[in-house]
Amino acid sequence: MLIVNELTENAAHEDPGHPERPERVGAVAAGIGSLHLGGDVVNVAPYRATRTELVRVHDGTYLDELGAYCYAGGGDLDEDTYATYDSWAIAQFAAGAGLAVVNEMTHRGEGVGFVAVRPPGHHAQRDRAMGFCLLNNVAVSAAALADRGERVLIVDWDVHHGNGTQSMFWNDPRVLYVSTHQWPLFPGTGVAQEVGGLDAVNRTINIPVPPGSTGDTLVRALDEVAAPVIDEFDPTWVLVSAGYDAHRADPMGDLLLTSGDFARLARRVREVVPAPGRLALFLEGGYNLEALRTSVAATLGTLLDAPFDAAPPSSGGAGEDVATRVREQRRVALELARAARTSGEDA
């Protein structure tokens, strides 16, 4: 069963010519439609995330400022990120859509959740918009789950590092953040040595891969670097920052993934979901509409055991040594972090 928010393009949040555009949601809808799920789809009405729900991860001052800026007419927030008069309300509904999907899944105790909203969220930081993102949708849901006592794994396979999500949970042992991303690339964060704050050592796993990397590199690194930590963390919920700009046809990155690679990544994620109704994916990037359509279909087709068409998974690209290199860099960083924590406790 697919539990998905009511898909709306939110055309009132648009900057003509900008790649983060309303048609992206249409591409997602087409991808879901291609699976012919029939009555196996539950549409969940989003609601406007409340201030209480948002301040778990965002500063109240930022929320006030963003709202006021939008109601004053909006404009460019930085060289990448825009807001319109309607963006504040749309962003609140985007964050609320995630909460609504998670609540519905909790109530049903089954299904796979997909939150297809825009603007995306994983670059949004506690106190600022960034990288097309206004509110951090996946983080709002993760924080809500963590406050209910859940141990939340966030897997972020967007081509860009989710710097906002990482920073929000940097020192929070209730959340394990795992990111595969191209490096170097915007936003410039996400090196392997970032392993979490002193209260959450080993709760951040970054797997930066070089341009030209193929799907096999990401999967191998997830298996060799992330899987043991995930096993130990033993998540009770899994959220995915599902960006599709690592696809080879996407203009925003230089990785060489195919739609078939997203099926492969989805299989890996499914293996660590602890129980039915405990996996929800959040749309992040993905700017080539055809790649987005086919990759969403491959992801959800895999998770729902529905037939789908996908290109063969990619292999043989750059970054053969990524898993080894990341493991070694993390080993050193973890030793330093644990020593720092011990010396802090002794002081």
């Binding site: 400022e65 460019d76 927030l77």
Partner: peptide, 17 residues
Amino acid sequence: RGEGKHPGLLLGSTSLE
């Protein structure tokens, strides 16, 4: 002020941040 910033806008102000 950098390129593309709105004068007087606190959000996104590189120098203030």
